[in-house]
Design a protein around this nucleic acid. Structure first.
Length: 578
RNA sequence: GCCCUGGUAGCAUAGCGGCAAUGCAGCAGACUUGUAAUCUGCAGAUCGUGGGUUCGAAUCCCACCCAGGGCUCCA
């Protein structure tokens, strides 16, 4: 199912989708007259409509609704707009409690209604001319959804659907949805033996050997890039005393997401964030202005209690490892530090074939700490950094954290889905709370600016994104198994082992399939594992002291020299080619 | 947390009141194989957990656990 993100709706289809939702509502009303109407907007990938019904819709209900909708479309009913007063609206929708609530919330201005056939809905429009414009549609799924998204309000039954002006487009849409299903990281994670989840630890995934290969490769790249920029890499404890969390403010504001333990009658908390620990390292010494900026990175494993219903594979978990770093610098250094982080972010993303980003700058919210002036300066530094780099970005006014402005990065994967990963946040709060300072040129105590930043976000989630982005076919440098060696018959086993050893010695990750199975079967299984190269050795290769290589796309190269092949692989791995 | 759907052998599924089934994987044997499934046989399951209804429950009911899809992209 294409992801329901908060993207803009393709404007060409918005009207059609919205109108289809009206058609669906009219079909539901015909079939279930007692259903009360919620709302029915167009969304990123289609539309939905919420209904209050006694019995949730079943799949066979959806079929009936689809059938009814086809009749309505065949009748080619016109959509007609009419403006009415609030009083008229209240009368017209007197049996629709949710509509009444909306009407009352909309103030005293004129309201508009749309009618097709016998069905009328409160709606600002616009709509298509008539129902016949809907050439293809499908109801996709049902789901419970709270009225106005509030857990305190009634749970309505939502039906999602999609529609198009050409039947061909619907086929394409369904094909893409299937492709996404195929790439689902939970499915691939199981098939490729990358990770697993167990009832014994809900929300805490187990990373298998093959998954850890990917993890470690990312970690190596991450460390290299950070060392180059002069980051020090630290590690802070997993469990820290409750007092620390009281001081940091997490106790007041984040408690319900934290895990606690009592040891010898003393309360400890499992860290949900790395910053307080990092700050203790900063405070260990006096710092001169000459030491700044101080850049401290940590692959910090954090635990956060998430509601059971939101957990999902590697995407939403209760334990994850952040590629965290904290930068302590002066206000003057802020801009160049931000530029450095942005450049690092883009450099890292490109290694994984993410070449398109969306950048968002979030500014001061209503409830915020720190003076107007400090905010202005920091926000300007972020803005200038983006502009110096000639990057396009959107501004989310008032969407920043209470403790400072931030920049977020969204990456676009191979299926054009967006993922928020990197975040760069200025923090005025922590330096205050922990009384951080450095000694200035004038021998005075000064507050440093603190920047929190994560680039990949969480290793778990990032690996999940990579699995879907590559569809499990990782580039050579990330592949858990880079070469699978197959011997044709038993008599080639010794030679196969010799070749394998030679490759392994050079750091190539190999596996040998020495089962007494047909070559066809061994190839099939290696191919299903999406292994980049399959090496086959038989009589011919042994005679020539060579190998035959088949790549992931089925391209075969006969009788090539082992050493030449190893060189080629090493070259690609070193460059981390995509 | 709430709503919906689901949980049957290592994996994928069928069965939906009356003997738990099929494919893959596993094991044993035969075949010694040349680029996406060689053949035969064997073994493997307290049907998520606990309770209830029934002569009889994988199947119906209740509770719980776990997973997946959703839970203001506002008339």
């Amino acid at each position: 199912m294409p992801e329901q993100g908060k993207n803009e709706i393709p404007s060409k289809l918005e009207k059609l989708w919205h109108s289809t939702s009206h058609v669906m509502a009219s079909a539901v009303k015909e079939l279930f007259p007692e259903a009360k109407l919620g709302i029915g907007p167009a969304i990123k990938n289609g539309f939905y409509y919420d209904f209050d019904v006694k019995q949730p819709f079943t799949p066979s209900d959806l079929e009936k609704i689809e059938k009814k909708m086809k009749e309505i479309i065949a009748r080619n009913e016109k959509f007609e707009r009419k403006e009415i007063s609030k009083k008229e609206a209240l009368e017209l929708f007197k049996n629709e409690p949710y509509k009444l609530e909306l009407i009352n919330d909309l103030g005293d201005e004129k309201l508009s209604i749309y009618t097709h056939g016998k069905f009328t809905d409160l709606c600002k429009g616009p709509h298509i001319e008539s129902t016949g414009e809907i050439k293809a549609f499908k109801l996709l799924k049902t789901a419970g959804a709270y009225w106005r998204g509030s857990e305190k309000r009634p749970m309505l039954q939502r039906i999602y659907g999609v529609s198009f002006r050409e039947p061909k487009k619907l086929d394409e849409f369904l094909k893409k949805a299937k492709e996404m299903e195929e790439r689902n990281h939970i499915k691939l994670g199981k098939e490729l033996d990358l990770f697993s989840v167990h009832p014994e630890a809900p929300g805490f995934p187990f990373i298998h050997g093959k998954g850890m290969v990917i993890w470690r490769e990312i970690e190596k790249l991450w460390e290299e890039e950070h060392r180059k920029l002069g980051y020090e890499i630290v590690q802070t404890p997993m469990i820290l005393k409750k007092e620390l969390w009281e001081k940091s403010g997490h106790w007041d504001h984040y408690r319900e997401h934290m895990y606690f333990v009592e040891i010898d009658g003393v309360d400890f908390a499992v860290k949900p964030m790395n910053c307080p620990g990092g700050i203790l390292i900063f405070k260990e010494k006096r710092h001169s202005y000459r030491d700044l900026p101080i850049k401290m990175a940590e692959l910090g494993t954090v635990h956060r209690h998430e509601k059971s219903g939101v957990l999902m594979g590697l995407f939403r978990v209760r334990k994850f490892t952040q590629d965290d770093a904290h930068i302590y610098c002066t206000e003057e250094q802020l801009k160049e530090q931000i530029i450095e982080v942005i450049e690092l972010t883009m450099r890292l993303y490109k290694k994984f074939g993410f070449n398109e980003f969306k950048i968002e700058l979030s500014t001061k919210p209503e409830k915020a700490m720190g003076s107007e002036e400090v905010w202005e300066h920091a926000t300007q530094a972020l803005r200038n950094a983006l502009e110096d780099l000639k990057l396009e970005y959107v501004v989310n006014e008032g969407e920043g954290a209470f403790y400072g402005p931030k920049i977020d990065f969204h990456i676009m994967d191979s299926l054009e889905r967006e993922w928020q990963c990197a975040t760069i946040q200025v923090d005025f709060s922590m330096p205050e709370k922990f009384d951080l300072y450095y000694i200035s040129k004038e021998d005075k105590k000064e507050r440093p600016v603190m920047v929190h930043r994560a680039i990949l976000g969480s290793f778990e989630r990032f690996i999940g994104i990579l699995i879907e982005h590559y569809g499990g076919a990782f580039p050579l440098w990330l592949s858990p198994v880079q070469v699978k060696i197959l011997n044709v018959a038993d008599r080639h086993l010794e030679y196969a082992k010799k070749i394998g050893k030679k490759m392994a010695k050079q750091g190539i990750r190999i596996e040998l399939d020495d089962r007494k199975e047909s070559v066809g079967k061994k190839v099939r299984e290696a191919a299903k594992q999406k292994i980049p190269f399959i090496v086959v050795v038989g009589d011919e290769e042994e005679k020539q002291n060579s190998i035959t290589v088949r790549d992931r796309f089925g391209k075969m190269e006969k009788n090539i020299q082992v050493s030449a092949f190893i060189e080629r692989l090493k070259n690609s791995i070193e460059k981390r080619e995509n």
